[in-house]
Structure formats: structure tokens, C-alpha cells
Computed example of a mutant assay.
Amino acid sequence: MLWTRPVTMLRLLALLLLSELVRTGLLVSVLPQAAPGLGWGPAALGLVVGAHYLADGLAKGPLGWLAGRLGLGRVLALGAALGLGAVLGARLAPGPAWGALAAAVWGLGYAALWPGVMSMSQALARPGYAARALALSGVAVAPAILAGVLGVGPLMAARPETAWALLAGAQGAALLLALGGLGLRLPEANAPAGSVWRGWRRVAVLLPAAFAQTLAPGLFVPLLYPLLARLGLGLGDLLGPGLLALAGFGIGLPLAGRLADRAHPRRALGPGLLLLALTFALAAPPGLEARLLLLAPLLGLGYGAFLAGWNGLVGRVLPPAHRAAAWGTVMAVEALGFALGPVLGGLTWAAAGPGGVFALGAAVFVLAEGYYLWPGRAALRGSPQADGTV
């Protein structure tokens, strides 16, 4: 087991899975299908969804700090209660103004969840397993997100009442889990006097790369279906490449995680970024459909190595006495990169087609790799707090 208190971590991961299932199911699957019947136009729907994600992204740092002060369990319980109120309110009183306000308030409460889970995962990781524990915590939520899109979406189309009941029940279960850990607190770590600012300087060094490396995948958020149409493919045609990518990820993540824990996270992060850049570059020329089976495992390997290296590096750099707030700050910058990606992706598609978008993504990954090799690495080593491990 990766953690010294596995039951605590499994409860937190279960809370995260339920919460992401409800959030994805409501905002991505249920509300878009229910909007026409509610009299909501695209602008109203966008306002509700955008209000939630904007509040969540901007509040991650402050709510991480608050979780450290008031207790993680209390803040998570409040967020789960707000989520249940938002789901029930969307069902029983579905006005766009109320919906946007409720979604934003829910986003504020939700903001502590990811920083809290990652902070606790790092604090409870067994010695020598931090990178693997953090990487697993980051990807464990993927099945819940997929279920929110691929499960709740079709259910809403066929049986709307059942879909609403599923979301309310899942959020109710999340609230019960959160209430069961009401006394949970992040382990305390006292920083040496005068070291707080130096620790935050090292966090700041990570932020440019955090922004860039979420910008690259964000380029394709609105372009999946246009890309498939351009290639003459359907979703079913992605099954084989998807399985190969998953296999590559399953091989790359544990191997890179072991390397990150035993040597240094950069040993995994560098190859991961280069593999991602290579995959995007090879996808840029015409005829991508003929290379999908080759590129899919490279994508999985690269992402697995990147995820293990990035989480391991962040875990080493964050100031222990302010870990949740620092995780929240890094995640907020990542969210900004992911939010800007679709805008740049759409503009690049209009100017240069899909090949231009892939080329831009490859360039962003190369720039991130260059940053880690020179200015970012030098700044970390030159920091008053840097030591031989970072």
C-alpha cells in the first residue's frame, strides 16, 4: 500500500470520485440536455457552467489555506453540503440566475477538495512512495469523470428522472462520507522561522510550466468532434487506440513513478514531456488516421511519465507548513492554462487546421521541457531553501 493510513486515503478518494461523478454528470451531461426544456439558451448554460469552474479555479489557493486552518474535514463537509444543495436546486428551482449563483457557491466549496486530497496523499505517503501516491491520487478520478459523461449522459437521454435521482443519491453519499471524516485535519508541519517566503518562491518557479503543460492538452477540448469529422472517424474507431494508450499509461506510470521516487522526479518528467512533444509532432502531418495505432501507446507512455514526474516534483517543492494552499495555487494556474487552451486551439484551427494545433501543442511541451532544463532548474537550485533533493 502506498499510504501509512490507507483507510483514510481510500475514504478521501471515494469522496473525490463521487464528487467528480456528480459534477461532471450535472454540468457536462444533465444540464446541457435539460437546458432546452428549462428555457435556457446557450448563454445561460455557459454562465452556469462557467461560474462554477471559475469559482473553483480561483478559490483553490484560499480554500486550501482555509482547510489547513479550520480542518480539512469541516471544509470538505461544507463543500459536499453545498453540492447537494446545488443538485437539488437545479432540479427543483431551475432558474438561470439561481443556477449561476448556486454553481458559483458550490465551486467555492468544491475548491478545497483537490488540494486537500493531494496534500493528504503526500503527507500520508510511505517513505519513498510519494510520487506514485500523488500520481495515483491524480488519475484515480478518471473512471468517475468518464461515468459522468458516458454513463449519465445516455441515462439522461433515456430516463431523466433516474439520472437526476442518481446525481442526488451520489452527492448524498458524498456528504455522508465527508461527515464521517468531520474531524480530519492535515498533518501539521512546522516550517523553520523565516522560511515561509522562500518556500513560496519555489512554488512560483513552478507556475509558468504548470500553465504551459495544461495549455497544450487544453487546445483540443472543443476540437475532438471536428477532428474526428476531418479524419472520417467515429468514436468507435478510437476504441483500439484508446486501449493502446491506456496500456502505455499503465506501463509508464508505475515505472516512471518508481524512477521519480528512487532517483529524482525530473528523471521521469523530462522523458515524459519529450514523448508528449514527439507524439504531437508526429500527429501534425496529414494522414494522422494511419498513425493512430503507433501514436496511441506513445501518448500513454508519455502522459504516465509526465504525471509521475510532475506530481513528484511539485510534492518536493511545496512548503510543508502551507501544503494545501500551495497545491491549490499550482492547481489554479493549471486551470487557467486549461481554460486558455480551447481559445488558442480554436484560433489555431481556423488559421492552420488540425496540423497547426498539433504543432502548437508540440511546441508548448518543448518549451516546458526547456524551462525545466534551464531557468526553472537554476531557480530551484538557487533558492535559499533548495537542497540536493530538488
Rank of each mutant, 00 (worst) to 15 (best):
L54D: 00
L108K: 03
A368F: 07
A158G: 02
L136H: 09
A191K: 01
V117L: 14
R381A: 15
L54T: 02
G46R: 12
L318R: 00
R91V: 00
V357F: 00
E289W: 06
R23M: 11
L136W: 14
W3L: 05
G355M: 03
A51D: 07
A67F: 10
L175E: 01
V75D: 04
L313N: 05
A332F: 04
L228M: 15
A34Q: 13
A210G: 11
A325R: 07
P192W: 10
G302P: 02
G376Y: 11
G39D: 06
L269D: 04
E334H: 12
A351F: 11
L92N: 03
P375M: 07
A335R: 05
G370D: 07
L206I: 15
Q385E: 15
L136A: 13
P271F: 03
A339D: 14
L17A: 15
L233Y: 12
A209S: 14
L166Q: 02
Q385Y: 06
A102Y: 01
R74P: 08
A339N: 07
L58V: 15
M1F: 13
R262H: 12
V48S: 03
G61A: 15
L12K: 09
L244V: 12
A130P: 00
P154S: 04
P187Q: 12
A379F: 07
A157G: 09
R74N: 11
P192V: 09
R126F: 10
A229L: 10
G79Q: 00
P62E: 04
P222V: 06
L15Q: 01
G382K: 12
A80P: 00
G257I: 00
L155Y: 06
N311G: 14
P342I: 13
A305N: 01
F365Y: 15
A80F: 07
Q122R: 15
W197C: 10
L259H: 08
L113M: 08
V221F: 15
